[in-house]
Design a protein around this nucleic acid. Structure first.
Lengths: 323, 323
DNA sequence: TTGAATATTGAGTAATTGCCCACGCGTATA
DNA sequence: TATACGCGTGGGCAATTACTCAATATTCAA
């Protein structure tokens, strides 16, 4: 059986090259050299130096963080926290017109995760799936924290049987040396019966049990509009999506769909959602990470009913949630 | 009443400005906008946008991190360079638990030598002896550079009369087609008188004279602990080693022993060391190549007194030198 | 209110960077 | 062995960014 060739790039970047890239990136961003200076220090041409710097960026070796309380963001955060009785809110700046749906959120989530994992006392951290969290994990730096536990709260098998593209826990485990518990399940099982069967598996049971003990969880929020992630990724059919919309579902967290009041939809695909239940918000901090106009309704619903008690979003979304 | 002339500038940066700077910095570094785009988004001129970004940097609102082992090395290198006023420092990654005492260093030294020899202007390069340099030369590729001169700074005859195992210049000459000047002497002569006699030989005199003119030298550093290379290789007896230890000698370069302050020991075996003197650090670059816990004290001593003005070492050793 | 000192701004310009393209070296293939 | 292919490289140029300078705005004290 032929392995599918690595998506897209054929170039195998060997270690030496990445080393040089890191070196160039350091000289450029940390030491403030010009690319000409880097070139002479590394003994390469300026163009090559430029490529190395660029490689360091594209390989995500350089991480830029900006920790400054921007008054506007702080204001939104405080008002959101008050309005919805949240335990924790972070609002990052918006870049009007930028197409990236995770820009800023991913960095903030990464910083939050690093903060969680830097605790000296053991923590059990739950994590969902989705584009936002995947992007966040890419921003993470390597952390050694074997005393923590990381548990996936949602299945991560795509409908075609492959590990889903958004297998966040797997990517996380590559960055963080902590015991991690993936959930090798589809997000939505074929039937309620199949879900029961799957959940009885030994490995899954352990993960699910651990999922109920998480102290901090970070989850994405999916909308149920025409380009709902559940639909786009093939977890539900178009008919199922329309049916959900018809009963008033506006969003989902970990696959659990809910209406505009944040009430979890009875029956329908929720009978087949294989994910763990949302951790208890009285004992755990459940942070939703999401932004974007199409998600506003879903986020608002989740906040209203306190499906989550923490939020990381951007200015535009914050404004919409408050308006 | 004159206002105290603020050293630099009297910048009174109010909060709004820092906010804008943070926002500009965010849009620039995180969102990847150009300064033109930032200008239009923030409603200011391009120059102002540039100033805001620059302010965000100078106020350290943006924090750049590099996630790569190399980054740590670069950091150590910069700190060592500052701490000891060195002209050149390279720190290579450590491989914890690896027994090889030259791993990484040898490769780095080889690369440095190749860089020296790739210069188009003629260079006189000095070289010491020892395991580290021997391993480095083994890493060298063949180079044709007849316009350079290579001169041995230390004797390379073993106590038993054979060419010492670490006859670096000999091995170097096999790789590099440049005029080379070995020093067919023991590292330590039998007596001060014998040293004088040996140094009067025509061939030796020429090599010694050339040794004083080297522009770049690479030397090893030996410790004087129980397994001091000078003792293990039979250049000094156990009694002589103990005597050296008793007067506080902690290391040696080219056979010249020195104490923890880097002061060259008076008398004792230094009266019989047949090596060239260390090149003048005001006019030449003298790079020490060494790593390992047992050498830390020796290296630190050499750096303190500026016996060398360049260093190639590894992370662990760098950390120890800084700690 | 005025004047002086200081800060801020925009224009112009130099420096730096990003990117495209053609070349050359090495490797795989017929 | 000859040929094609791919990858990396450096040249050149356009875009972007950094800096200098003079003009303008602002602040503070008399």
């Amino acid at each position: 059986m032929a392995r599918r060739p690595e998506s897209g790039k054929t170039k195998d970047i060997n270690k030496t090259k990445l080393d040089d890239a890191a070196r160039a990136g350091w000289l450029y961003y940390v030491a403030g050299n010009t690319q000409d200076e880097i070139a002479s220090k590394l003994g390469v041409s300026r163009q090559t130096a430029q490529r190395l710097v660029s490689l360091a960026v594209s390989e995500k070796l350089v991480k830029v963080r900006l920790d400054h309380p921007i008054a506007q963001c702080m204001d939104y955060a405080a008002r959101l926290q008050a309005a919805y009785g949240l335990d924790e809110v972070e609002v990052v700046p918006s870049d009007p017109g930028h197409p990236d749906t995770t820009l800023g959120i991913a960095e903030a989530v990464a910083a939050r995760i690093e903060k969680i994992l830097s605790a000296s006392d053991p923590v059990t951290m739950g994590i969902g799936t989705g584009r936002t969290l995947k992007a966040a994990v890419e921003q993470l730096s390597f952390i050694d924290c074997p005393h923590h536990f990381i548990v996936s709260l949602a299945g991560n098998i795509a409908p075609d049987g492959s590990a889903a593209f958004y297998n966040v826990v797997f990517n996380l485990a590559n960055k963080v040396s902590a015991p991690s518990f993936p959930m090798p399940l589809p997000v939505i099982a074929a039937s309620a019966g199949e879900r029961a069967l799957l959940h009885e598996q030994a490995g899954i049971g352990r993960t699910l049990a651990l999922a109920q003990k998480v102290q901090i969880a970070i989850v994405g929020v999916g909308d149920l509009g025409p380009s709902a992630p559940l639909y786009e990724d093939g977890f539900v059919t178009l008919d199922e999506l329309k049916a959900l919309q018809n009963v008033g579902a506006v969003g989902e967290i970990l696959g659990w769909t809910f209406d505009a009041e944040g009430r979890v939809i009875e029956g329908m695909i929720n009978e087949r959602v294989a994910s763990a239940r949302l951790p208890d918000r009285d004992n755990a901090l459940v942070i939703a990470a999401a932004k974007g106009g199409n998600k506003v309704e879903a986020i608002r619903a989740a906040l209203r009913r306190r499906l989550v008690n923490g939020l990381i979003t951007d200015e535009d979304t914050a404004r919409a949630l408050l308006g």
